[in-house]
Nucleic acid binder design. Sequence first.
DNA 1: CTGAGATCGGAGAGCGCTCTCACGCCACTC
DNA 2: GAGTGGCGTGAGAGCGCTCTCCGATCTCAG
Lengths: 344, 344
Amino acid sequence: MTDTAPRPTLEAVAALAGVSRATVSRVVNGGDGVREPLVQRVRRAVDELGYVPNQAARSLVTKRHDAVAVVIAEPETRVFADPFFALQLRGISKELTAQDSQLVLLLTEGRDDHARVGRYLAGGHVDGALVFSLHLDDPLPGLIQGAGVPTVFGGRPGWSDGRGGVTYVDSDNRGGAREAVRHLIGLGRERVAHITGALDQTSAVDRLDGFRDVLPDADPRRVAEGDFTPAGGERAMRELLARCPDLDAVFAANDLTAAGALRVLREQGRRVPDDVAVIGFDDMLAVAEQTDPPLTTIRQDIEEAGRLMARLLLRRLNGCGGGGGEGMPTGVVLPTTLVRRSSA
Amino acid sequence: MTDTAPRPTLEAVAALAGVSRATVSRVVNGGDGVREPLVQRVRRAVDELGYVPNQAARSLVTKRHDAVAVVIAEPETRVFADPFFALQLRGISKELTAQDSQLVLLLTEGRDDHARVGRYLAGGHVDGALVFSLHLDDPLPGLIQGAGVPTVFGGRPGWSDGRGGVTYVDSDNRGGAREAVRHLIGLGRERVAHITGALDQTSAVDRLDGFRDVLPDADPRRVAEGDFTPAGGERAMRELLARCPDLDAVFAANDLTAAGALRVLREQGRRVPDDVAVIGFDDMLAVAEQTDPPLTTIRQDIEEAGRLMARLLLRRLNGCGGGGGEGMPTGVVLPTTLVRRSSA
DNA sequence: CTGAGATCGGAGAGCGCTCTCACGCCACTC
DNA sequence: GAGTGGCGTGAGAGCGCTCTCCGATCTCAG
């Protein structure tokens, strides 16, 4: 098979069907305003030739690309430890597919890549962008906003508080955290500790805030800083145990952290949940179901969040031209649910 | 900000720099054959205007897209349980980025999507494809081969045995399995059992073959079929324990399976590794490090595999036109390594 | 100082498509 | 039976870029 088999063009289809290019174009793009018999003839010609429109030529004139960039900043952190992004990607993919858009994946790693991504987005290769940027001080969101590309963020960007105009989809980290802590209190626990996530991420900050919402007067020594990893969880748990040997419950910022904490508790002879109740966050199945005991945790519907992000973006692209504001929600917060297993 | 800010074109840059379009084009594409002072002037104009080439226009004439599709079939299965694809994507992304190619992600879910993907690939929107298709009976690989798009497969496609011409990158599943079993034997174990993966996937078949390479005469009752999930691992482990209560070692087809097996063993009062040694496969960190005891397992360098896939594809795209054959490896098998923790 | 050879820069023709216009043809009205 | 809409169709002009000529310029030997 020579790879020089030239793809059929509109012209070729038109010739075969005995009509003009314009008519073929009309049929290919929906067929409005073309009489039925002609539509049939064109369709047949398209099939016969195996014609597929050349997207490049089309974009050149329409200035639409039917493609959306998904930018994931600093994959090293969380992406690869949990199915978080995979699930979200799946949701995004489903929604984009349903609307005939392509998904261009941009993984960035460090500062150099930011410029590259900024340039790419500014270059108008895609119609819009879905951006995951976990860190508060990440310059990427700013860059992207500057590029003038319609964007929806996954997770609340760190600087979104004051200003409006930023569209994002986030889980109800704060509400979920409140629910977790209240659950522990409902179990009769009186000395609840918290292991935070990496506090340069809004999700960690929000979860800490949720903890404080419920326990505003908690001894500050009952809060230890973690980093969303099992190792961080272990370290923080040791600290907590040293500082407050009498604690009877731990709310960990995520399941990985909880797994680390669980190990330290066992090692130090504390029974879970009898002596110390433990609750996680995320409902990362591969972890939460495997720990001993299985982890009670807060679940977020990640796939739905992804789907929603895509839907929001596409609505903006198709619907209102660029007016923005009007009718575009600024932030959408998805509910979380408590999943009871055995650890609390 | 109105979204109608027209992007600068080559023409505009040329005008500002006081040269012709052709010269700007040359500078933008490497600058060969243009005198230094002019190059400088053009560069300055490009910067000043923030010019970015219009990829659509470029593709239209060059017939290159600088984009590669990554097709992941049936994500529900494994993708979301482990960081397997995430890591591979990262490797792919790194390599593509380095060569200025974009990554177009195609997630498929069920048969309908196959047609869509086939059409997309045949449509010549991308220069090549990297395809992950786990299942032996998946029609997708055939479809894609038929589309005439240069393709590299991730994992050995089920039907690649006889025919040549299929390029793929795979881990040494069979060799890794042999190493795992030999390790158990080296520990003095004499009744080694195996829990397979989902046998409609080549990786599972290869691992089983590796087991049999070392233990060709093993009692067939010491092999139980799993499905790469913890639940499958539990079920298979119970079966094995019922059939062969005297087994002293288990080689599980992956870490998730091993985790399930571990749970059943503990539940039935077998000590690991004293009574029964357990070894997994994949070195899925979130699992292998968290189990009790931590899992001894076989590691594969997934990220490197991804990078290699991309490199192979790009080499084919850039290098030899379409001759294929010549110098193109058909299958590349990456080595695995044994990671010793406590379970064996 | 001239001419040959080498090199650099510019004009222009498309790539395959969409979309605006203008025209032709029909049904229908008076 | 001629006039008048209105719908369907085709012609043609680009979208922004690359790349092939070909003419202009520069260099250097004779």
